[in-house]
């Protein structure tokens, strides 16, 4: 779906790897539960596979993965086109915090919640526009531009909330994160992420935007020589990424019914890059795989949930993630690719 049908058979799609990763992580956890002396067994209370009903909705580790992975998946969907154009957006975590802060502050100030949501999304898009214009028209390296917003954006979020956690009670805002529609007993973040996946795939693959984005990242000179508007496209990728980050920020905010400018979106940039890279999009640009990034996000959340289940703190979680990103990058690096390519025989 993320890659045009017929272009690659299913087992060649990079999305397979994160899916296999999720499956093996879940199995590993089940095995742990079963074999550990004094463990809960396969479906006992506290077991990884156990699904219980809480307040009429399913709960458990598997539901947690879908729930908390949703925001990461949305981030990853936004990050994918940026990375495909040879860029990167380090500011997604801060944009999350900023969007949450804006929405919460507005709601607390009695602005209608729908207007607050819209404003927060617009702020995210504006952040992306700043990044995109500075990168594509200003010619400043993407990681420098977005590093500024990564650090300063969090500062702005603190200014917005007055350096405190702004809590609120608003049905619509809470629904974004905590909602469980009656007709679909799944966590709202997962539903939103799936909808975003569908929308993104439609927008990029049912138009030529995806092809052009990949062309710009794959061979900028060739793209320019067929008349692709590279700069506009690059700027648009950052705007979309900012928009996605804002949506993810709203979900994170809704999950805790409050905007925390200090901790919202912490390590989110790492999570998003992890998902994209594991999902088969190269940091060198070019081909992108939206479905892979989507699956990669849930692999990351599965990893985090596993670590929680094994009582490893959230603060330590980035260590294996960072190492995994490095490993994937090394496997895909030019020297290693050349080494592997020498073995593979080319068709004439």
């Amino acid at each position: 779906m993320a890659t045009p049908a017929g272009q690659r058979s299913w087992h060649a799609s990079p999305a397979v790897w994160p899916v296999l990763g999720i499956v093996s992580l879940v199995l590993l956890n089940a095995l742990f539960d079963k074999l550990l002396p004094g463990g809960p067994g396969l479906f006992g209370p506290g077991a990884f596979l156990r699904l219980s009903m809480r307040d009429g909705v399913p709960a458990g580790a598997l539901v947690d993965i879908l729930n908390y992975g949703g925001a990461i998946a949305i981030l990853a969907l936004g990050m994918t086109p940026v990375i495909a154009t040879r860029g990167v957006d380090l500011s997604v975590g801060s944009v999350m915090a900023l969007a949450g802060a804006v929405a919460a502050s507005l709601v607390v100030a009695d602005v209608p919640s729908i207007a607050a949501l819209a404003t927060a999304l617009a702020v995210g898009a504006a952040c992306g526009l700043c990044n995109g214009v500075l990168v594509s028209f200003g010619g400043v390296q993407p990681f420098v531009v977005t590093l500024v917003l990564m650090v300063a954006g969090r500062g702005v979020a603190q200014l917005v909330t007055g350096s405190q956690i702004t809590t609120f009670h608003d049905p619509l805002l809470e629904f974004v994160g905590l909602g469980r529609p009656a007709w679909l007993p799944l966590p709202m973040p997962f539903i939103l992420a799936t909808a975003m996946l569908g929308a993104t795939v439609l927008a990029l693959r049912r138009t030529a935007l995806g092809l052009f984005t990949e062309a710009v990242g794959s061979n900028p000179e060739a793209a320019a020589l067929v008349g692709v508007r590279s700069r506009l496209l690059v700027a648009a990728a950052y705007v979309f990424c900012g928009l996605c980050a804002a949506l993810a920020g709203l979900i994170a905010m809704a999950n805790i019914k409050g905007a925390d400018p200090f901790n919202a979106g912490r390590n989110a940039e790492l999570a998003a890059i992890f998902a994209v890279v594991v999902g088969g999009t190269s940091l060198a640009g070019g081909r992108m795989c939206l479905l892979g990034a989507f699956a990669g996000a849930f692999l990351l959340q599965a990893l985090t949930t596993t670590m929680y289940a094994r009582n490893i703190g959230a603060d330590v979680a980035p260590l294996p993630q960072a190492l995994a990103i490095l490993a994937v990058c090394i496997v895909g690096s030019p020297p290693v690719a050349a080494m592997l390519g020498r073995r593979r025989k080319r068709t004439p």
Partner: peptide
């Protein structure tokens, strides 16, 4: 270096200019 997208399919390379126009 200036013409083809080497990791793209024959079809995508063929339609690129028409699509761009």
């Amino acid at each position: 270096s200036q013409g083809l997208l080497l990791d793209f399919s024959v079809r995508e390379n063929i339609v690129l200019a028409l699509q761009s126009r």
